[in-house]
Design a protein around this nucleic acid. Structure first.
Length: 461
DNA sequence: CTTGCCGGGCG
DNA sequence: CGCCCGGCAAG
């Protein structure tokens, strides 16, 4: 587990997908970055390994586009005097470790990279993608390179942390979203359904992100459905109510626990969708839909990706790509989830096993095994992924439980009549047997089998 | 407890 | 084999 090739995972992170970066955006990014920069030290403290990354961008990875919310920063860095609210004066942050100028450059670079990363996990596989977005940076190629280097380093660090923190991302501050990437990559089989859905989702998300729409934020925490209009507020809510204000990580993780949804879409949908995700991810991950996908999966993935760690930073999560998924335009979201569920389970239950198990008798025996097998198979498929998920993180688990995906499965197992040793003994047939027909008194009229206490030959079922 | 039968033993 | 029966499982 320990070491993983940082380069592979992390560096590629940058996503070509999201290239649209206007000057304005950049500026915004800058602002945030700097704000973060200040924070960085604090955050870093907890995880020694991340230093490198932090230096350049401890950023909340996702840079809120289009809207500058002062709020974004404050939770993290209260001490900070300079209010980022005004995007126009990025330089204002005096605290940064380096001279403003250099910092600026690096930060910009970092920001871009991160931004891109957050947007498209897909990219992970293609390192080149990273650069794509960068071009925008007027600054210098040289910096670019540096940035890349840093990224890599960062990646390494991250991954390391990831490895160690597999079971508890809390430790490393590895946010759930990270896992996403992993899942996506690992997971294999995709079913048409899933794919379709995902595609749809993707599209929707894309649309959404492009067109800044106004929405509300809904807390995804299991039993909490709180809806707030401001992301800041939601973050705060999550942090305070669910994460506990104390933890530093919470700053970044809040993002995962809430989702943005458009006013149109009924909040209810949101949770549903997200809840499904877990399973969905199992089935179809491949399509790493950019940010969006990630958003959806986040909860579940959280747990799953142990190593995943690094690349997709927490950031991107829902927050930045806000809406992440949930609020899709109704139709999709609606259909998707429900279908997921229904399809899913039945499917699981029946599919594999029936085939696998050879039933001599039509009887119960056959049925029994299936569930078990199924579940197992399922797990195997995603092996790590699934397991990780299950085990892992609180949130993920909670989600799962909530949705009872797990529960159902479990239940199935338990419930499944483990008649076990199918002795093939015929259950009591409905047909009357000689004994019943003729009665004990007329034993002589019974068929020989019956007389011999064997299976009745006269009235076979 | 009653039934239906499997598994075996005996001749 | 033909006959019987001990014993188990389902109802």
């Amino acid at each position: 587990m320990a070491t993983k090739r940082p380069g592979e995972r992390t560096s590629p992170a940058a996503g070509p997908t999201d290239t649209r970066q206007s000057g304005a955006e950049i500026q915004e990014t800058l602002v945030y970055m700097q704000c973060c920069g200040q924070e960085a030290p604090n955050m870093t403290e907890s995880n020694g390994h991340r230093n490198i990354m932090n230096r350049h961008h401890q950023v909340p990875v996702f840079v809120p586009r289009g809207r500058t919310e002062a709020g974004w920063t404050h939770p993290a860095a209260p001490q900070q005097t300079t209010t980022p609210t005004v995007p126009s004066c990025p330089v204002s942050a005096p605290d940064s470790f380096r001279s403003p100028g250099s910092v600026e450059m690096d930060e910009i670079m970092a920001a871009m990279v991160l931004t891109s990363m957050s947007c498209s996990p897909v990219v992970q596989s293609s390192p080149q993608g990273q650069n794509d977005p960068v071009p925008g940076s007027s600054s210098g190629g040289g910096d670019m390179e540096c940035g890349g280097g840093d990224m890599e380093c960062g990646g390494g660090d991250l991954s390391d942390s990831g490895s160690s923190g597999y079971w508890s991302w809390d430790h490393d501050n590895v946010s759930p979203s990270l896992s996403l990437s992993v899942i996506e990559m690992d997971s294999s089989p995709d079913e048409g359904l899933h794919t379709e859905l995902e595609q749809g989702v993707e599209l929707n998300v894309a649309k959404r992100s492009k067109s800044s729409f106004r929405g509300a934020y809904r807390c995804l925490w299991p039993s909490c459905g709180k809806v707030l209009t401001s992301s800041v507020g939601m973050k705060r809510h999550v942090r305070v109510m669910h994460l506990g204000s104390g933890s530093e990580q919470s700053h970044r993780e809040e993002d995962f626990y809430y989702t943005k949804f458009s006013c149109k879409a009924p909040p209810a949908l949101v949770p549903a969708l997200s809840s499904h995700v877990p399973w969905a991810s199992c089935g179809s991950p491949p399509d790493p839909g950019p940010g969006p996908g990630s958003c959806l999966q986040i909860p579940s993935s959280t747990s799953s990706s142990p190593s995943g760690s690094g690349s997709s930073r927490p950031s991107s999560g829902p927050g930045s790509t806000p809406g992440s998924a949930p609020d899709q335009p109704s139709p999709l979201s609606q259909s998707a989830p429900s279908s997921f569920w229904q399809t899913d389970h039945p499917y699981q239950a029946c599919t594999p096993l029936q085939v696998t198990v050879s039933c001599h008798n039509s009887a119960p025996c056959c049925w029994t095994p299936p569930p078990l097998t199924v579940s197992n198979q399922h797990n195997h498929h995603n092996s790590q992924v699934v397991r990780g998920r299950c085990r892992s993180v609180s949130v993920g688990e909670q989600w799962l439980q909530q949705n009872s995906a797990t529960n159902r499965l479990t239940t199935m197992r338990a419930a499944s009549p483990s008649r076990s040793q199918c002795s093939f003994r015929k259950g009591r047939g409905e047909a009357k047997k000689c004994r019943k027909v003729y009665g004990v008194e007329h034993k002589e009229q019974w068929c020989t089998a019956c007389r011999w206490k064997k299976a009745c030959q006269r009235f076979t079922d």
